[in-house]
Design a protein around this nucleic acid. Sequence first.
DNA 1: AGAATAAGCTCTGGATCAGAGTAAAAGGAG
DNA 2: CTCCTTTTACTCTGATCCAGAGCTTATTCT
Lengths: 365, 365
Amino acid sequence: MTTRSTELLRVAHARPGVTRAEAARLLGVGTGAATEIVARLAQASLLAEAPAAPSGSRGRPTTLLVPHPTGPLVLAAAITHEAWRIDVVELGGNAVASVRGSHAGSDWAEVIAAVTAAISTLLPAYGERLRALGVSVPGTVSPDLRLDASSLGWHDVDLTTLWPGPVFVAGNDATLAAAAESARGAAQGAAMALHLRIEGGLGGAVVDHGRVLMGARGAGGEFGHMPFGDPAIICPCGARGCWGTAVDGTAMARRLGKPAPPDPVTYARRIIAAGSPVVAEVAAALGRGIAGLVNGLDADLVTLGGIGVDLLAAVPGELDAAYQAGLMKVHRASPPPIRPAALGDDGPIAGAGEEAWSRLLPELA
Amino acid sequence: MTTRSTELLRVAHARPGVTRAEAARLLGVGTGAATEIVARLAQASLLAEAPAAPSGSRGRPTTLLVPHPTGPLVLAAAITHEAWRIDVVELGGNAVASVRGSHAGSDWAEVIAAVTAAISTLLPAYGERLRALGVSVPGTVSPDLRLDASSLGWHDVDLTTLWPGPVFVAGNDATLAAAAESARGAAQGAAMALHLRIEGGLGGAVVDHGRVLMGARGAGGEFGHMPFGDPAIICPCGARGCWGTAVDGTAMARRLGKPAPPDPVTYARRIIAAGSPVVAEVAAALGRGIAGLVNGLDADLVTLGGIGVDLLAAVPGELDAAYQAGLMKVHRASPPPIRPAALGDDGPIAGAGEEAWSRLLPELA
DNA sequence: AGAATAAGCTCTGGATCAGAGTAAAAGGAG
DNA sequence: CTCCTTTTACTCTGATCCAGAGCTTATTCT
């Protein structure tokens, strides 16, 4: 429709349940224009108005901008190494339905069959209302939507078959989790947020004023492959001294003189719970690397996901000491805080929904 | 004025001398709208039309969009540790005048007096046409325009006294050089460009689709303080193992067992010219770090400034070997090229002009 | 009940631009 | 040289969007 309509929708999406008057103020339009724009969006089944709870103050009561009951919806999917989940997400980010399943094997054909079947079951229920798909995957996605997840044996997989429509986004789980944290989680309002997510490896993303940096080939945020680690250790990626080899479950096993565990995530959680002294060492390696990234990128906030949350909870002192020691003096006066991700394991699917909505909005208005 | 006017001005600035018809195509407007918008901008003394050179093909000859002869101008200033320079820049980036001087001492009061005096001499000549100032400085600039250049003893200096007008930008020299390389230099069109500049230390910037990441406190791109170096070496910044301590003139002196040189830049140039074996070692440290940044940020192009250009010219093989070895396998098939900066030492001042124009344009139209 | 307050609604006029049609300025063919 | 083709620029009409002023509505406070 028009620029203002898109902006209003964006506000309504970012802050579901805003009052109509506040949305008008945020857009910088007069009340006359607000009337017209809201009417147009309601006519197009994009927005609806609901009576607001009594504010207690004087004045004519305002209305809340809520998603239209028959308005467009977005599918958000998250595929992990062992399971998948699909949410139906309305404007504002609320999930109105959810389907999930697991896949023991890591055969891509099996995964895509299950996901495609699940999407097919949702199509009759929501029909034309489903307008976009966002997918989170445990690997990198090129700009032409091809997935590469080396550790799972998925190479150059074409994702476009998942969705026939024009609005389709796919991205790395850590990248999308970062987008979600910035939009609705612990990194709201940060000028330059850094998100780090330790699971099998270490991934993340940089978010500049709410915009996630995807990288030239969709592989942005692979901080695990920056050489903050021990140069003697060769990473499966082919380089040496990768930071990721110093902070995950495999690193803990190596420090304990044990063979690499088959499931580094649960292994790491067990070691952390056991209170092993290697936990502090790994946390220090994490803190030092975070400091390096903060120095280089001038982030003002760091959020941690996956095992990072457990490390932060278990040995906050060690992590913070290494972090402080690695910071430039200029940052030490007020070090950017390191916080656990607010969305937890829902980060990737929430981010998939966010990105799908973000791409759909300009098409609608 | 309006969005389209700003867009047209931006096109005319980015590609000085575009034909009017092509600009209309780039904006996606019809010829009718183009007539009206150009007329409006000409009326406001922002654009002028010049006859185009004969194209040799059929059709009514188009006109070129050029800066208006009495249109707005921008001041671009570059302050270094020993000299200063001010350019008067018209739309399109062309400098119509230039003043320069040097300051032997590093007393900020002296510097600001000289620069302020130079600006005063330019004011009567160009008067109201001067609408904005962009300044490049060898330090970090906070969002509230305070400069910190530790190595020169300039701490928390207020820059706002330099310019009375509302449109005033200031930034780090390496950051601004990156902006210039992306707008008009070797990094044009890159999706994610990385610029590195070695002088006294190592600075740079990340440029995502033409937008420079300034960081939360204006200290983005301090890659010299990421821990890619030897942890035994303590950096003046307070951290250990900073990459910057491994790649500049001071690093060369240390490897040669010499004391730190007073002027590391000329010292480094001399060592490189002499063909010392430490040059290859330093180039390798540079290449390895670049690989780490490319891995982490998924850059598709790297530009080098300052001593980096000399290193690249002197020992390209060593630099490239270390770069390749540090890249993840996925990047090795087509490694992002490492190129010398096209603008050379003019990068910072060109970037100051770019940023000033970029901020001024929306105010005009 | 009446004043005060905050918000929504209606109407007018101006700015912007898309689209269609027309005019202008060049090269090429005869 | 004249006419045709090609490309671009100009003119005109109508639709859309929205700012601003003034008015109406719904609520709380006194």
